[in-house]
Simulated assay, not measured.
Amino acid sequence: MDATAETSNAEAETGRPQKGPLIYRQSRWTRLTHWVWAFALFFLLLSGLQIFNARPQLYIGKESGFGYDNTILKIGADEADEGSRGYLEIFGRRFDTTGVLGWSGPPGNETARAFPSWATIPSYYDLGTARVVHFFFAWTLSATLLVWLIAGLFNGHIRRDLAPRLADIRNLPRDVFDHARLRFHHTGRYNTLQKLAYGGVLFVALPLMILTGLAMSPSMNSVLPFLNELFGGRQTARTIHFTVMVLLVLFFLIHMLMILAAGPINELRSIITGWYRTDPPENGTSSAERSN
């Protein structure tokens, strides 16, 4: 009797689908750094929005001010016939964002602020505290990324799990199609889209976030003066920094949707305990064999 027949008999006897084997998928270093990143990025985002509120505009170039016309994004509030209205302006096109961006707060007690109080740390305006929180978690994120990189090189996680292979590139169209249909294969290995997404965050987005943050720091300019020039000036570095933040938020939202769609219990068990339940074997093949 082959594995498929055994699985079918087991399902018929129990009335429930046969479960696949548990495999040890995530090392302790991967799990630890994952949760430190999640914690650090949460505080970085909310304290960063507080810092942005001090000057809610983005520019391209080395300088900004009244004598320049290089603003690409602005959040503010204007007086209108019906009262104060918040707005978001991108490349000269304005959108009404009253109640969320530019003008927000409890009814009757609204204030002019780019991002609302519930989206910032602290909730009240305190630039000094926001900067302390932001810098602390920025260094926490940087140190954790370095630890993950060293551990990933030594234990083979980067080479084994994240480096795309030729077969991954060939499987990309099918992988995109499967994700669009919310059809997931629990093989215990990262699929092509996961490798590209995680690799993009870990090797592009986070390092870019760190480098642009350093480029904006006046104290770091004396130590690494080339960073400012590399990104086209402090204002351009600030714009890139903000853009990467938006991309990371989008990644987080998609990441959460995929976890819910693929099976949140299994995914959370994997990143908390390291153990991941794979699909039942098909035709006598293991999950690892089907993923190759």
Rank of each mutant, 00 (worst) to 15 (best):
Q26R: 02
R131S: 10
L206S: 02
M209W: 08
Y68L: 14
T187V: 06
I150L: 12
S84A: 12
A10H: 07
T111C: 11
P106T: 09
Y24E: 10
T212R: 12
N155V: 03
S84K: 14
R31T: 05
L208Y: 05
A262M: 11
F43Y: 13
L162H: 06
T71Y: 10
F252K: 01
E63M: 07
H255Q: 12
A3N: 13
M256W: 08
I272F: 08
G232I: 00
M216F: 05
N228W: 00
R269Y: 07
G99R: 06
A12P: 10
L22R: 01
L145M: 14
I265Q: 11
D175C: 09
D161I: 03
L248N: 08
A180T: 10
S217R: 15
R165G: 14
A130E: 05
N155Y: 04
G233H: 01
G284V: 07
S270T: 04
G48I: 00
A114D: 12
R174F: 12
L141Y: 00
G15A: 05
P207F: 02
Q26M: 05
A143N: 09
M1D: 13
D126L: 10
A12S: 14
H134G: 05
T7K: 11
E11M: 09
H157S: 13
I72P: 01
H34A: 00
N191I: 12
L182A: 13
T192P: 04
R159A: 08
A197I: 05
D175I: 03
T71H: 12
P122N: 09
G20F: 00
V176S: 06
V249G: 13
N171Q: 11
R31G: 03
D2I: 14
R93Q: 15
F39C: 13
A5R: 11
T30C: 13
M216R: 08
F66T: 12
T192I: 10
V176F: 07
N292D: 14
R16E: 07
I265N: 10
R131Y: 05
F251P: 03
S64I: 00
A197N: 10
E229W: 01
N283E: 13
Y87Q: 10
Q57M: 15
I271C: 15
G102K: 02
W118R: 01
S117H: 09
P173C: 03
I150Y: 06
A205W: 04
I259R: 00
R170K: 12
S84P: 13
V204K: 08
R174I: 10
G156F: 07
G233L: 02
V133A: 04
L32N: 12
F203E: 06
I72C: 02
I272W: 08
F43Q: 04
G92C: 04
Y198I: 15
G65A: 02
A151Q: 13
S64K: 00
F226G: 01
L227E: 00
P116F: 07
P218W: 07
P107N: 15
R183P: 06
F43N: 06
A288V: 00
N221E: 07
T243G: 08
V147L: 03
A167C: 10
L211S: 12
N266E: 02
A138M: 02
D279V: 05
Y68H: 14
T129N: 12
